Simulated assay, not measured.
Amino acid sequence: MNYLLPSLRLWLVTILICVVGYAGMMLAFAQTVTPWRADGSIVEVEGRAVGSALVAQEFTVPRYFWPRPSAADYDAMGAAGSNLSPTSDDLTARAQETIARYGATPATPLPADLVAASGGGLDPHISLDGALYQVDRVAQTRGLPQAELRNLVTSLAFAPGGVFAPERIVNVLELNLALDRLGA
C-alpha cells in the first residue's frame, strides 16, 4: 500500500510528459514547419471544405476522374489494406468489376493503379497514365475537347520524388476541382 501513492504520481507525471507534452511539442513543431499539412491539408472552395489533398475520396460520376479503388471504402478512420491474398477470389472479383467499370479490354488495358488499391486504401493520387486513360470518358461526358483535357491533366501532374521517383502522379481531387473551374 505504501507504494500506491508514489506509483500514481509517477504514472501521472509520465502521462503529462509523454502524452500531453510530447503531443503538444509535435503539434507546435508541425504548425510551425508545415501548418497546412498539420491542419489536415483541407481543400476549400468558396470557404467550404470539400476534402483533403492527402486523403482519397470516392468519385463515381462519369464526368469526374475516378481514384484508385479503396480497401477502406474511402473511410479515413479505417485506413488499411485489404490483406487479401493475390489468389483471393474476392480480390479477383473486385478487380474484374473495376476492369468492367472502366470498359477495359485487352486492346486497351487498364493501368495497374486503377485496379489495385493502395497499401493504406486512401491514396489521393493516380498515375499520369491512369488519369490520361480516363480522359476520353470525362471529355465525352463534359463535352470538352480531349486535347484540352489532356493538357489540364499534364499540367497538374508532378513527380513527388523528383529525380529519385520520376513517375508523375496527379491528385484526383485537385484535378476534379480544376475541371469544375472550367465550367463544362
Rank of each mutant, 00 (worst) to 15 (best):
P106K: 05
R150T: 15
I169L: 12
S70A: 10
I99H: 00
A93H: 01
V163A: 15
G130D: 08
Q134W: 04
L12F: 13
R101K: 13
L54H: 04
L8V: 15
A107I: 10
S70K: 00
G51Q: 07
V43R: 07
C18E: 12
L149M: 06
A107W: 01
R181D: 14
G24S: 13
A112S: 11
A147Y: 05
R101N: 06
T14Y: 08
L156S: 03
N171F: 09
V55M: 08
G47I: 10
G130R: 11
V138R: 04
A112V: 14
F158S: 10
F59W: 08
N176Y: 02
A131H: 04
A112Y: 07
P124R: 01
A116Q: 15
F29C: 04
A71Y: 04
G119Y: 06
Q57I: 14
R137A: 09
C18H: 09
P109R: 03
A79D: 02
P67S: 06
D180K: 02
P111W: 04
R37W: 12
A30Y: 06
G51A: 02
T34V: 13
L16M: 11
M25W: 14
Y3I: 03
R68D: 01
L122A: 03
A116H: 13
L132G: 11
P145V: 09
M1E: 14
P69W: 01
A100Q: 09
P86F: 03
I126K: 05
D89V: 08
A93D: 12
L122G: 04
F29Y: 13
L91H: 05
Q134Y: 07
N151E: 15
Y3P: 13
E167R: 13
D39L: 05
A100L: 04
D136Q: 11
V43W: 07
A71D: 10
D180F: 02
L144V: 15
F29D: 05
A165K: 12
I17G: 02
T92W: 06
H125I: 08
W11M: 15
T14R: 11
S118V: 01
W11E: 12
N151L: 13
Y22A: 14
